[in-house]
């Protein structure tokens, strides 16, 4: 009984995912992609009339999230064989969003509607890279600095702290997502965000502590001390707040948490590599300790500014 039910569920999900693909392939439109900063290229299954295809009044384009804002086109050009149309927009497009294009009278069909979006995996990967490098939480958002300066003296400490932190942040971010979407939002309890999120973080830290102590005492001996520090880190509470602000779904949440943890690990490791060298260097006595660490971190922050133009996919 149970088994047939599971089979039905699997079948239903498969249909749910595959159905849109077949629907797209049937019609006039073969392929649609973004190109450059402000273009959409549409490939058609057969040639169409040039006058109709190049009349920009025939197209209506908007982002799926807000259908009220119609994006302005500056031109539409038909390719040589009459099989592909390039739509050029006046303003750059936000390629993260799904765009809906509605075309009138194309190939004699009254109205053709199709969606243009980037590959979702690429978008998820973009979130990861963004949290890791472009918006690194330590060097470009200036969060988690207390723990950052406290534990970046030695490479081994840095690695331990980074790994424990990544583990805790992924678990607590996923839990916060569930609480936010299934308890806080349905019951209009959004003002309790801070209390609930910090409670969940403490809970996760306590749970990881207990589980690790029983399951792997050796790992606990080397990593246990860092668990207490995790809770004093602003990043761990910033991630749930960001995901609540942006209405991320569960995959996006996972990627953001992974990127935040990985970015913290990266920053700690880089800083500890410099700190180990600084111990041998001749530093003016007034700069010893924290002042020089701050100046090094400032240089890292400037270096990380270089990632700001990075765009993957």
């Amino acid at each position: 009984m149970m088994r047939t039910r599971i089979q039905y569920i699997v079948l239903a999900t498969l249909i749910f995912f595959i159905a849109p693909l077949s629907a797209l392939a049937e019609g006039l439109i073969v392929d649609q992609t973004f190109s450059g900063k402000n273009q959409i290229i549409v490939t058609l299954s057969g040639p169409v009339d040039k006058v109709v295809a190049e009349n920009i009044d025939n197209y209506t384009v908007f982002e799926e999230a807000d259908p009220d804002i119609i994006l302005a086109l500056s031109s539409a050009t038909l390719g040589k064989e009459g099989k592909n149309i390039t739509l050029v927009f006046k303003d750059p497009l936000n390629m993260v969003k799904t765009h809906v294009v509605a075309a009138k009278n194309l190939a004699g069909i009254d109205k053709t509607t199709f969606k243009v979006s980037k590959s979702y995996l690429g978008y998820l990967f973009g979130i990861l890279i963004s949290a890791l490098l472009i918006n690194n939480f330590v060097f470009t958002k200036y969060l988690g600095l207390c723990v950052f300066f406290g534990t970046s003296k030695k490479k081994s400490t840095a690695k331990g702290m980074g790994v424990v932190f990544t583990m805790v942040i992924v678990v607590s971010a996923l839990m916060s997502w569930f609480f936010f979407n299934y308890i806080l939002t349905p019951f209009n309890l959004n003002f309790l965000q801070i209390v609930v999120f910090i409670g969940l973080v403490s809970l996760t830290v306590q749970a990881v502590d207990t589980v690790l102590r029983k399951v792997n005492p050796i790992l606990f001996n080397s990593f246990g001390v860092y668990l207490v520090l995790v809770i004093a880190n602003c990043v761990i509470i910033a991630v749930p707040l960001i995901l609540a602000n942006n209405n991320y779904n569960i995959f996006e949440t996972f990627m953001l948490a992974l990127g935040a943890g990985g970015g913290f690990l990266l920053a700690l490791y880089l800083m500890s590599a410099v700190s180990e060298r600084l111990q041998l260097a001749k530093i003016p006595p007034t700069f010893k300790g924290l002042p020089i660490a701050f100046i090094v971190a400032g240089q890292f922050a400037m270096a990380f500014l270089g990632f700001s133009g990075l765009q993957v996919f």
Binding site: F139, T140, Y142, P284, P285, T286, F287, L290, P291, I292, A293, F294, I295, A297, G298, A301, M302, L305
Partner: peptide, 21 residues
Amino acid sequence: LPSAGFFVVGLMMAFFNWIEV
């Protein structure tokens, strides 16, 4: 600029240390 925050805090700490010394 945002990244100058690190430099300012570092330099001010060094300045207070210097006064103390």
